[in-house]
């Protein structure tokens, strides 16, 4: 049920889209730098849910995802003065979270070599049956389509969906793909979603 509330907060009462989290983040960061000490809370509120999705795209369980997000914010506290363009604050945070998520995944694999295959192939703690049960038709069809994708496609689409302005150059480093192949890969992954939507039908 809580999930439905999240959705209605995202859309305004009249069904219009509210200011995007990236725009909110920019406004809050600019206000904070201008001396409004409380604006940092607005920045954290706007961006924490976005960072959640970016980090979860890497397959981390909920606890690890929280750790990565916390490390991202601590890094922000330490380094925010190095963000030259305040407009880029959302991208800066997302990039930092992606790097943290990728590094955390490498460490986890090293720490548990026996479970290597399991870790690589399973999205732990993914989504409960109860959650899927309360999805509307559209969301559940999309979810069904996404589950047919390989891990790389799923990760790429989820990260890109929550990025402010997709930065293919840094994505290529983090996902270990050539820059030139991200656009086509993205298009291919989306095409797979469409195919799954038409062939999967009711699922």
């Amino acid at each position: 049920m809580g999930t439905m509330v999240t959705m209605s907060e995202h859309r305004g009462a009249g069904g219009q889209l509210e200011e995007s989290p990236w725009d909110k983040a920019r406004g809050a960061f600019v206000a904070w730098r201008a001396g409004d000490a409380t604006a940092v809370d607005d920045l954290v509120s706007a961006m924490t849910p976005v960072l959640w999705h970016v980090v979860r795209a890497y397959g981390h369980d909920r606890e690890s995802a929280e750790d990565v997000i916390q490390a991202t914010w601590l890094g922000f506290v330490r380094l925010h003065q190095t963000i030259e363009d305040p407009q880029a604050v959302a991208s800066w945070l997302i990039t930092s979270a992606r790097r943290g998520a990728a590094a955390h995944a490498r460490t986890a694999r090293r720490a548990a070599p026996v479970e290597d295959e399991t870790l690589a192939s399973v999205l732990p703690d993914e989504v409960s049956a109860e959650t899927v049960a309360v999805l509307d038709d559209e969301a559940s069809r999309l979810w069904g389509a996404v589950t047919t994708l390989d891990e790389r496609c799923r990760k790429l689409l989820r990260v890109i969906a929550f990025m402010d302005r997709p930065d293919y150059h840094s994505l290529s480093q983090d996902l270990d793909m050539p820059v030139g192949s991200i656009g086509p890969t993205r298009a291919r992954c989306l095409a797979k979603v469409r195919t799954a939507l038409t062939t999967g039908g009711e699922r």
Binding site: T3, M4, T6, M7, H53, D136, L142, R158, I160, A161
Partner: peptide
């Protein structure tokens, strides 16, 4: 489609 996927993930796996 990416916008729809984003909304779906917000529903399926909220923080």
């Amino acid at each position: 489609l990416l916008d729809d996927l984003r909304d779906m993930w917000r529903l399926v796996d909220p923080p």
